[in-house]
Design a protein around this nucleic acid. Sequence first.
DNA 1: ACCTGAACACCGTTCAAGT
DNA 2: ACCTGAACACCGTTCAAGT
Lengths: 186, 186
Amino acid sequence: MRLTRDRVLDGAFAILDEYGLGDLTMRRLAASLGIRAGGLYWHFADKQTLLAAMADRVVADLRSPENGDWRTDLQGLVGDFRGRLLAHSDGAELVAAGYALHPGAGEPLDTMIKILESGGMEAESARAAGTALIHYVLGHTAEVQAHGRLRAAGALPEPEDGDPDPEATFELGLALFLDGAAHRIG
Amino acid sequence: MRLTRDRVLDGAFAILDEYGLGDLTMRRLAASLGIRAGGLYWHFADKQTLLAAMADRVVADLRSPENGDWRTDLQGLVGDFRGRLLAHSDGAELVAAGYALHPGAGEPLDTMIKILESGGMEAESARAAGTALIHYVLGHTAEVQAHGRLRAAGALPEPEDGDPDPEATFELGLALFLDGAAHRIG
DNA sequence: ACCTGAACACCGTTCAAGT
DNA sequence: ACCTGAACACCGTTCAAGT
């Protein structure tokens, strides 16, 4: 059976989730699909385009809630966004890399801006706040996933009882951010 | 003359600043130093170790101000940190990559925590706040530098008059963050 | 101690040619 | 339209051997 862009992406995610971003090579992907590396270039212009398409799929169709309470809405969106990143190995790194290409990256930023504006925040502040929030989520999640990878490889010790829970740390940082936004809204 | 670790690092920064992180290869670096690629492995265990040493040098000896006003101190530290990243091409990406290895990365995080605690913030909140702030600075700066690189390569249009100034956006996001911290301090 | 020479096991990408 | 075969121009890393 001939391949489609979608089936190539399916194969790419299979390798990503089983072996990680570092082992996702064009030659390996091609082999897993039963073709030669050169054949992939009929479906995607280059590797960067393929990775961008993967990033797009990871964050596609994020729910854009409409409860009226901006804080709850934003919290829900961030949780959904973060959940998508965590659903794939190196998901945050993948999305962060694609993020540099098409600046806005559309999906999460625009919705965040809308939510903040609906809460009464001025346009330019809302853009800055949304950008900051996305950088925070991407950075924190990428670090969590990187540590998980290193730990699995034995390059990092197992977490001890004393050290901070990443989940709790994330929520604390998010709360801090939301407090800042609330202060700006007034 | 025989090489030292320091002179290898000098050569690495020369390539980084002139050609970018993507062109910083072991073979290219060796050639610029007048040796073969294999010779580099006497000075550094592998490329990752070399990059980590570069990242350490970028953020080495950050000033840790002590004015008493936590907000001014933190703003100064962040400005210094960000300045260091901007001083080298792809500086933010370099430091962010090294950041995943030794989690705390020492330098900026510990100082931030101290400043926040001196302002009266509880320990766990201070750690979360510092982590969030570093992710924000790294993420925002990496994006600014990536756009600069893409623009230089003609892959991104020149900035128009209407669109937001990255510097102003950064300051807005930082102010928002500081407001959140102030709220938590009470 | 510091580096060469040469190899090993890979990469991404291109492109004429096949079907 | 979709892919092969084969090449091009690279990578990081290892390691016996040289000086």
